[in-house]
Design a binder for these strands. Sequence first.
RNA 1: GCCGCUAUCGUCUAGGGGACUAGGACGCCGCCCUCUCACGGCGGAAACCGGGGUUCGAAUCCCCGUAGCGGUACCA
Length: 441
Amino acid sequence: MRVRFAPSPTGALHVGGARTALYNWFAARHTGGTLVLRIEDTDPARSTPENVEQILDALNWLGLDYDEGPISQVSRSERHQEVLAQLLDDGHAYRSNATKQQVDAYKAQHGSERGFRGESEASGAVRLRVPDEGASVVHDLIRGDTSFAHVHIDDPVIARADGSVLYNFAVAIDDLDAGITHVIRGEDHLSNTPKQLLVLEALGAPAPVYAHLPLLHGQDGKKLSKRHGAASVQEFREAGYLPEALRNYLALLGWGTDDDETILSTEELVQRFTIERVSKNPARFDHQKLRWMNGRYMRELSVEELTARLEAFTGRSGLRDAVEISKEKIQTLADFWPLAGFIFDGPADDPAAREKWLDEEGRTVLQDARAALEPIDPFTVEAVQGALEAVVAARGAKPRQVFQPVRVALAGRPVSPGIFETLAVLGREESLARLDRAIGL
RNA sequence: GCCGCUAUCGUCUAGGGGACUAGGACGCCGCCCUCUCACGGCGGAAACCGGGGUUCGAAUCCCCGUAGCGGUACCA
């Protein structure tokens, strides 16, 4: 099996494109086949080298490698011109100066039962001659056979007047030359497939097998875009998601196993993936489920590994102890600093929390707590826990009436990792200093 | 408008004629655990788009309708 991922460098790699890349990668790795990366840059107005770089970067971060490429589509223009000349020569294509208005007028005149057919002229854009009779059938592994009657298809422009080729032509030639056996791409390409089939047929060349993936939508059912929050792979990376979690989530958007397993490692995904099991209906992207899944993946990492990722993500070092006591409470890498940053940068400033927990009574609690903690050595989780529980007992208070003021004194906010663990990580000196500062307020 | 694709809980899905009082996951609700927030455990509410067929029997097959989406570019 030879498959390809062929993004157009007109912007960042979006999750829809990433999902397409992932499925191609699964198909190739599952069968021991080959994945070709091709950059569809035939639109000079929208394609930039920066975007190519960004796409390559995103694929790399996602952990998707390829066996051939990246090859630029424009780099193959010599070959494209050769085929174009051949089609012009043997009458499968012709030049035409017909404008959009003329095409519309033609169709208005002939009704819906007749696609546009132009006259051969000496100059102009190149159009492919579509037969009046018959139909092109797309053989699709996901959708079965879909038939498109030729009478409904306009003679498509396959090259601009300046000679540069267009997508529906280039894609057919490039897939053919690359020996692509299975074209796995988004469903938005299904309706244009007969035009590509017609190019191949004019050449007497064989067609690949297709697999048109259902599209991805935002939570509102509309096409996924910026309005839905993160939409590009880069944005998910910056939002603190793990590539392995994103792979798992994306894999399940349009594909599932017969036993409906949810957490599947990349190895399992490769082993179990088959195109035939891809769903036919469009899927909505659910950030909440991704978040949940990302949390699962983070908790499965060792403290060492998670620390390494968090240090890379935050650009800080010495995070290990803080990571260890925060691990169960965060779902993304970005959640860490808001939760545990106070350990390094000092208490956060939360007036509402101070007002609620560091009132007159709260400060007497802190004095008791300070007195109980002061003599402790070594300053371990067990030791501080014993000391604070003794304070609770001595005051006849509810546990939270003691723990919350201490928490706010240390963290500045009412939410933090476990209070005993936090004390132990901060150490005796720093803990007492923070209590003193809060008492003095 | 025309052409095409699709249609199971709010969302992702399992299901491919009888195993369906329709299963799982996220989310939601309740309870438990508990120093906050989480994590974890237990329980609950929640769906076969509508109408015709085919069949002894339809979520599963066919047709029509409806809805959503895609295409209809000298974009990809």
